[in-house]
Amino acid sequence: MTDNTNKDLVICRCEEVTEGEINQAIKSGARTITGIKRRTRAGMGLCQGRTCQILVRRLLAKETKQKEGDLRPPTIRPPVRPTKLGIFGKNKE
């Protein structure tokens, strides 16, 4: 799917980040999925990279000639899915 370079192809749907932008981030020095995220916002949206992480990983591996399996996953942070503030707020110390 990503073999035919299509710079306008949207990779991160939440933040509308394209393949071209991700390749530009790699050119500017990103070598990790988190490095791409910080430069482009890919993975910063509502789904927190659940959809685009695989695609970002594939692009990064291809461009930097690394194995997909060797690329560290980005830091996993809570909450595991969007959670209303009211739920956290209910609990007393």
Partner: peptide
């Protein structure tokens, strides 16, 4: 946050770091 901005009750957190 909720004490001063109760309106946020139904807003969702997507990440903490």
């Amino acid at each position: 946050a909720l004490r001063v901005l109760p309106i946020l009750r139904n807003v969702s957190i997507i990440r903490a770091f």
